[in-house]
Amino acid sequence: MDPSLEPDTLRDRDDVEFQTETRTLSAPEFETAQSLESRVTVGIINAAGEVLLVADGARDWTLPGVSVGANAEWGDAARRAIESLTGLEAEVDEPIRVREVAFREEGESDRQRRTYDVLVRTTPVSGRPVAEEPTIGDDDVADLIWLDRVPEGVSDGLAADVRSVLERSSD
C-alpha cells in the first residue's frame, strides 16, 4: 500500500524534507496565483538505478509531474502519471520532499493561497519501460530518457530533486 502523500501528513516526518516559501503578490499577480494547482512530481526509478526524465518543451529535461485537484487523492495522481508514461502499474515507494508556497496578497488583504509540490519515488521497475503513447495529464510527451545522473544545464532545484531520487534508489 502506498504511503500517505497528503502534504499536511508529511510535514512532521523526519524522512521527508519540507520546504516552505511565502510570496507577497500584487492584486493582479495574486489573481493569477489563484489558478495555480498543487502537483505531485514522480521520480520513476528502474532496477538499474536510472530515473525517467521528460522533455516538457518549456524547461528541457524535468521529472514528470501532474496537477492534483483540491479533492483528488495524491497517490492516485502519482500512479496515473507512472502508468501514462511507462505503461506499467508501479507503486509509490516513498515521499522525498514537499515544497509549500504560500501566496499572500500585498496590503491590508487577508487573502492567501497555498500550493504544494510533493516529490515521490517509485518502487523500481524492470527495464526502461515507455508507454506506447506517453502522456502527462492530458499532454503528449515530446521526448523522454532514462538517466543515471543529473542532466547538464538543469536548474538547481531540479538537480537537487533528481539527486534525491537517485540517492534514495541506491540505498
Rank of each mutant, 00 (worst) to 15 (best):
A70K: 12
E29T: 01
R99G: 02
V54L: 11
L10G: 09
A47G: 07
W74F: 02
G43D: 07
R163A: 06
D60R: 15
F18S: 04
P7N: 05
S67E: 13
G157T: 08
S109I: 08
W74P: 00
V130R: 14
R128S: 14
D156C: 01
L166K: 08
D148P: 06
D117M: 01
E83W: 11
D76W: 11
E17F: 09
D139K: 15
R114G: 00
R121I: 10
P129K: 12
V162T: 08
R114M: 03
W146K: 10
I44G: 03
D93H: 09
G137P: 02
T122C: 03
V120E: 01
E167V: 09
R11L: 12
G57P: 01
T115N: 07
L5G: 03
I45G: 00
G75C: 04
D139P: 03
D138K: 14
E106P: 00
D161W: 05
L166Q: 06
T135H: 11
P124A: 15
R13N: 02
D76C: 04
S126R: 12
L25S: 08
R13G: 05
D60K: 14
G87P: 09
R23S: 12
T24P: 02
S38V: 04
R121A: 04
L53D: 01
T32M: 08
D14I: 11
G127E: 11
L10C: 08
G57F: 05
V42Y: 06
E108G: 13
G65C: 01
P151S: 06
L53K: 06
I82M: 10
L53Y: 09
D2P: 14
A72H: 09
S109Q: 06
A55T: 08
E105F: 02
V162Q: 12
I145M: 10
P95H: 13
A47P: 01
W61I: 03
L166G: 01
